[in-house]
């Protein structure tokens, strides 16, 4: 089990690095798919079957296909990559490095924290996810329907073609 964990962890970290470092956007997306799959592996190791399946269907399936479509439709490649100025790059590296440093320090000091709750093997099963979704998390579940409805209304509104072509 532990070997599997380290294997998935290594794949996750390496593929995440490739996502950032790859020159071609398509390679980035493929690496991201690998990353998501290995994270789904982690979920399975934790006995969270529901999360693993949803993760693969939604992220690896739907969202990444969308990403690929966008990249192909916009025809992004190395030549169309915007060049940032040196100052922007330095600022980005410094800012990102500082966040990393803070996170590392926090993890190093916080690593001794005892788990706040014992690990329950049944937490990730479809049955218990459904139970908590329709009991204690009923309100967030219902409210998210308003969220999705407004997103759909927006997609239709913004995506609809204008009547007179001059206005568009």
């Amino acid at each position: 089990m532990l070997t599997l964990f380290y294997l998935f962890a290594a794949i996750s970290v390496l593929s995440a690095l490739v996502v950032v470092a790859a020159r071609s956007p398509v390679n980035s997306v493929i690496a991201l798919i690998v990353c998501f799959l290995s994270i789904a592996g982690h979920y399975i190791l934790l006995n969270a079957q529901f999360l693993a399946v949803v993760h693969i269907i939604v992220y690896t399936g739907a969202i990444m296909v969308l990403f690929l479509f966008v990249i192909m439709l916009l025809n992004l490649n190395r030549s169309s990559e915007p060049q940032k100025s040196l100052a922007t790059r330095v600022a980005a590296v410094v800012a990102g490095g500082l966040v990393l440093l803070t996170l590392l320090a926090a993890v190093r000091q916080g690593i001794s924290v005892e788990p706040a709750r014992d690990f329950d093997i049944g937490t990730g099963l479809v049955r218990s996810v459904g139970r908590s979704l329709f009991n204690e998390f009923l309100l967030p579940f219902e409210v998210s329907s308003v969220l999705f409805l407004s997103a759909m209304v927006g997609a239709v509104m913004l995506g609809r073609r204008e009547k007179n072509p001059q206005a568009a």
Partner: peptide, 9 residues
């Protein structure tokens, strides 16, 4: 999110 997403649109 419910506050923001309509605003983005």
């Amino acid at each position: 999110e419910v506050l923001s997403i309509p605003l983005y649109i």
